[in-house]
Amino acid sequence: MAGFGFFWSVWFGSVGVDESLVMKEETGRAAAFALGVRALLPMHLGVAPFGVIYGVVALQSGIPPLAAIAMSSIVFAGSAQFLLAQLVGAGAPFLLATGAVGLINLRHALYSASVAPILAQLPLRWKLLLSYLLTDEAYAAVIPHLLKTPQSPLAHWILFGSGFALWAGWQLATIAGVLLGAQLPENLGLDFALPLTFIAIVVPMLTDRVRVATALVAALVAVLLSGLPWKLGLFAAALSGLATGLVLRRAKP
């Protein structure tokens, strides 16, 4: 029954009040995990078609079906997997492909820095697990919650919930894409769910002028440098936004 209650709380968010301390901690974890899962759910609208297309593109690049599916858990990074599939198809050298994947994923170091103080007290196995699951989507979905209560002893369960939810959805979408084979799904514009969700997350964070300036500079640089390869424009934009926030906050504390 504990298992059932756990899943019930994941999907419906209602957690009953229990008498014993042990049960309280368990339901607290379940509720935190469920919070993470629910925060991520809308992103599946955008991630699912992306994963299906990845599966199709990987096969077209000549990657064997099993390897295409395995890549989604071994690399587990959407845009890097697309790039890797293309590079394999083009016969790019090993070091170039590895370097390109590293550059495209550089922005994840920023997420790592952002959550590091929150996860500081956790045992190594948790740090390894949550690092593996640290993606744009999983981070974005729960960072408002994590920043609100950074000292929460259950913060890692929230991040685990969103990370796991994205991971599971990504694996299923990849398998669907590989099974579909050569057939690309019709573009319904569902990928628009991702920018919309990011908007829903970022806009409420813009509570003062310094934060608005941070966002404006990041947007401007991202657009100006969008022509750079390997998403380096994104990384430069994020750093420019950070520098803006930092300098303005120092100037006017």
Binding site: A113, P117, L134, T214, G245, L246
Partner: peptide
Amino acid sequence: IGAEGRWAMPSWFRSALPFVPIAALTALVA
């Protein structure tokens, strides 16, 4: 995440962290 506790994050670096979600996610959306 792995380095936390093994090195002292400089204070200016730490004070930039609240801007990470705003800067990184806006860069994705724009």
